[in-house]
Write a protein that binds this DNA or RNA. Structure first.
Length: 423
DNA sequence: TCTGGGGTCCTAGGACCC
DNA sequence: TCTGGGGTCCTAGGACCC
């Protein structure tokens, strides 16, 4: 049986989450900002209509915010994650196989569904259920490959006459839509590649679909070759129900205000490596490589610039926060330079092993800290319980560098004190 | 004053080996 | 004097995604 994929994508997800708990903002333009209140990462349809662009730094649109009364929110990630869970659980009830692709998107396997119900009807059913149960609007694109399902979803969003559901299983409809789609709107074609394609005279998705896969591979890579095949209805990507184990874990942040002292940098990196270690234990992995980096702001060209990073091997794979903090501090001593206004720092963990599978060298002694497993377990349990938060002294108490979140909405769904009140 | 954070995959090139 | 060719592993950097 030939495969059928659906892509379900929430409309303006972060902005929709904020609006859901603020019925007074129904018709008000809303934008949500990135961490540190830096730039716009989500816009309600009213904000889009005002011409607010994705990714624009918020200081550049202050005038419009004032003029049009745009409501501004800091990212409230725990709220969005909770709403996302509800959407995904509902999808899992409706479709046999679901791949959660990102916080606001999921691929469904609809192979065989059309023998029972028309694909468009099924799509409508999904859309209405999510909207009724969760209150979040979604669009659905249906097609024989993931790339075409993405495109169908795009069309469902763009053309309101579709009712938010587009079935692209028929080749004639595929070609019609491909001809209307600029090449840069294809999943997997970014800025660089679309420029090069246009130089070659390839402007629409249909132009790309009609280019030979072999020549695309020669001029670009296997990745784009796969895209060409998928545009022609040949499924090259499968549904991945179980997320593969991570290959690296990154924790980095820009500072709320510039860091100039070594002590504050130590605290910040400690904080990041501690979060990274928590994620690592959640993945049930141990890491053998640790990298750190620090840098000044590349956008401030009137002050001296410095950026540096360093990678080191741990003596053996570990998930113990103490080992990772220790090495982080050693690395920082080697790259730290006085006299700069640091804007950002981060750590990267990589080279992962399943717990207990690492082969020791012939002459290596395995001296694990005897209490490591238990201690880390207790630490994680307490920090997840919501009862309190334990932290390492190195992370610091005053923490002047933490990120800016001046427009944060309440934790409506995850904190008893902040539930929505109905009066 | 003010430009996010967290990922993946692929390729090219260097080091090294036989 | 001659300076091959194939393979592997590693790393840095590019490109993409949400």
């Amino acid at each position: 049986m030939s495969p059928v994929f659906a892509l379900v994508d929430c409309n303006n997800f972060y902005a929709s989450c904020e609006k859901l708990f603020r019925p007074d903002l129904v018709d008000t333009p809303v934008v949500v900002l990135s961490n540190n209140d830096g730039c716009v990462v989500a816009r309600s349809k009213e904000a889009k209509a005002l011409g607010i662009k994705m990714g624009v730094p918020v200081f550049k649109i202050q005038a419009q915010i004032k003029q049009y009364g745009i409501q501004v929110f800091s990212s409230n990630y725990s709220l969005y994650a909770d709403m996302s869970d509800r959407v995904m659980r509902t999808l899992e009830e409706m479709a046999p196989r679901v791949e959660i692709y990102s916080i606001d998107e999921a691929f469904l396997d609809l192979t065989g569904v059309q023998s029972a119900v028309s694909l468009v009807d099924f799509g409508q059913q999904v859309k209405h259920t999510i909207e009724r149960w969760i209150g979040i609007a979604v669009c659905v694109g249906i097609a024989p490959t993931k790339t075409l399902a993405k495109l169908a979803n795009h069309a469902a969003k763009k053309y309101t006459a579709t009712g938010g559901v587009v079935d692209l299983t028929h080749p004639s409809r595929q070609r019609k839509l491909l001809a209307l789609t600029p090449v840069e709107d294809i999943w997997g074609v970014g800025n660089r590649i679309s420029k090069r394609l246009k130089d070659m005279g390839i402007h629409t998705a249909l132009d790309l679909a009609d280019t030979s896969a072999k020549s695309i591979r020669k001029h670009f890579s296997v990745v784009l070759e796969r895209t060409v095949r998928e545009l022609n209805g040949e499924a090259c990507m499968e549904l991945e129900q179980i997320p593969p184990t991570k290959k690296q874990i990154i924790c980095s942040r820009s500072f709320g205000s510039r860091v100039t002292s070594r002590m504050h940098m130590r605290q910040a990196l400690c904080e990041h490596v501690t979060r990274a270690a928590e994620k690592l234990r959640k993945e049930r992995q141990q890491a053998k490589l640790l990298s750190i980096f620090i840098r000044t702001s590349p956008f401030q060209n009137n002050v001296p610039q410095y950026r540096n990073g360093l990678t080191a091997k741990l003596p053996r794979p570990t998930d113990d926060t103490r080992d990772l903090i220790q090495l982080t501090m050693v690395l920082l001593e080697q790259i730290w330079r006085d006299g700069y206004d640091y804007a950002k720092a981060g750590v990267v963990l990589s080279d992962f092993y399943d717990i207990g599978t690492y082969q020791l060298g012939l002459f290596e002694n395995h001296i694990e800290r005897s209490n490591s497993r238990q201690l880390m377990h207790i630490l994680d349990t307490i920090n997840h319980s919501g009862q309190g938060r334990l932290f390492f002294a190195r992370q610091g108490v005053t923490r002047g560098w933490v990120m800016k979140r001046d427009h944060l909405s309440p934790a409506y769904t995850t904190h008893w004190q902040q539930l929505v009140k109905v009066s």
